[in-house]
Write a protein that binds this DNA or RNA. Sequence first.
DNA 1: TCCATCATGTAAACAGTTACATGATTGC
DNA 2: GCAATCATGTAACTGTTTACATGATGGA
Lengths: 184, 184
Amino acid sequence: MAIGITELEHCTLATIRLHQPCSAYAVRQVFARSSTPEWSGSTGAIYPVIKRLLRRGLIEVEPQPDDPRGRRDLRVTPPGEQAVRVWIIDLEPWAAKATPDPIRTRVSFLDQLASDDERIVFLKEAEELTETMLEELRRTVEAVRAVHAAEYLAGRGAIHQLEARLKWLREVIACYGGAAVVNG
Amino acid sequence: MAIGITELEHCTLATIRLHQPCSAYAVRQVFARSSTPEWSGSTGAIYPVIKRLLRRGLIEVEPQPDDPRGRRDLRVTPPGEQAVRVWIIDLEPWAAKATPDPIRTRVSFLDQLASDDERIVFLKEAEELTETMLEELRRTVEAVRAVHAAEYLAGRGAIHQLEARLKWLREVIACYGGAAVVNG
DNA sequence: TCCATCATGTAAACAGTTACATGATTGC
DNA sequence: GCAATCATGTAACTGTTTACATGATGGA
């Protein structure tokens, strides 16, 4: 059992499985266009990951006529498919923790701002940015609705998360007397 | 203007400000005991960060009689306080994105499991783990309620996030016919 | 013809973790 | 006396990003 196989490696494996046969370049695009900022899909990350997955026999290069651009189509092997299943099923407890949120981090230091006015300015900005992200997310998620059920469901999860943040931010704004500033 | 100052550096600065005068060790404990898994508070991270903050003049060592254990009490300077305020106020758009969630990632690859039964097993496990984390979180957040208002509010944000995930997971379970398995 | 995109890959930098190393203090 | 905790710090490792490097294809 290969120890120390990372989230990125598992995620790359599952992504190849989903689009196979596909190139490393295609996997990069998927990460780069993802709505969450977990991985950039940088070449310096993906190509070494592909190399490791090949070495472990979890993926293989599809035999085919050489592409003039040097493209190599990849495919997940049966052990690779098994590795994906195990990764999903053997959910480790840490994975269920609340995820770090840069806005929440800042809120926890809110009393280091100079005044309630400053706090409200920050909170309103956070609210507006979250609203914008939510609108954009709704559009992109709706676009995959008909294409891919599981990806749509995951997108719904992200929407729930942003909606929860918005609800919470409004509670926090109320706490710091947001109404007074808005109506005054 | 110092470029490339990280979230961890800002977070360390704000934490020192909150507990000052305090040692690097105390800062480590705060990170280590945090309910979100963003940073471990490892020595290899904190001590170099402290060194950089000192070099930039954002913190200083409190002059005092030498502690036999070599303890050095730290304090945030006025420029350091300003840096914290700017960090909070100048909220960059990326910070409002939906945060990566390992459970959501797995859900997006759910059709790579072998059957609906397997999917339900995973989803129920995710639900249960999230419930456990939520209970634990509620306890720890309630404990800081009277002690520190802003930290309590941030904790409420984490609770909202886990509640949203739970609600979403139940929707997903319904999608994959969870009721059929439970009642059948 | 030129630019955007497709397609590969490496080298250096960077940020953080783990493991190691040292030593004092406190409580049992 | 011994273990847990307090307290500092470094070295090696890991997993990313950024920047660099090369070249083909397709469309304006």
